[in-house]
Simulated scan of single mutants.
Amino acid sequence: HTPGGVVFHLPMEKALLSGDTLFKGGPGATGRKYSDFDVIIESLRNVIFHLPPATRVLPGHGEETTVGEEAAHIDEYVKRGY
């Protein structure tokens, strides 16, 4: 959610350390003055959601989820704008 932010894919662990980029229920911290919702959505669509659906998403806060669970809701995230 910040310029230069990264996520870490651990293929051997079948996990993604997503920090604040992706939470259970959508992208994170998109309303900050330094955040760019469109960039986050682009990263989700073009990078993260191309990972295997069973990849565990371990966010910086809250419950874990999977890439497949969150990818299924991308249109909802875009529509609500956060």
Rank of each mutant, 00 (worst) to 15 (best):
H1A: 11
T2N: 10
P3A: 07
P3V: 02
G4F: 10
G4N: 04
V6E: 14
F8P: 00
L10K: 03
P11K: 03
M12H: 11
L16E: 11
L17Y: 13
T21N: 11
T21A: 08
G25T: 03
G25Q: 04
G26S: 11
G26F: 13
G28H: 09
G28P: 11
G28R: 04
A29N: 14
T30C: 13
G31A: 07
G31E: 14
R32T: 07
Y34S: 04
Y34I: 03
D36T: 01
D38A: 11
V39C: 04
I41Q: 04
I41R: 01
L44M: 09
I48Y: 07
I48M: 12
I48K: 00
F49T: 01
F49S: 00
L51I: 04
L51Q: 09
A54Y: 11
R56K: 15
V57Y: 13
L58S: 07
L58A: 11
P59S: 05
P59K: 01
H61M: 10
E63L: 07
T66M: 06
V67F: 08
G68M: 02
G68A: 03
G68C: 01
G68D: 12
E69S: 01
E69A: 04
E70H: 07
E70L: 02
A71K: 15
H73T: 07
H73S: 08
I74G: 01
D75Y: 04
Y77N: 01
K79R: 13
K79T: 10
G81M: 07
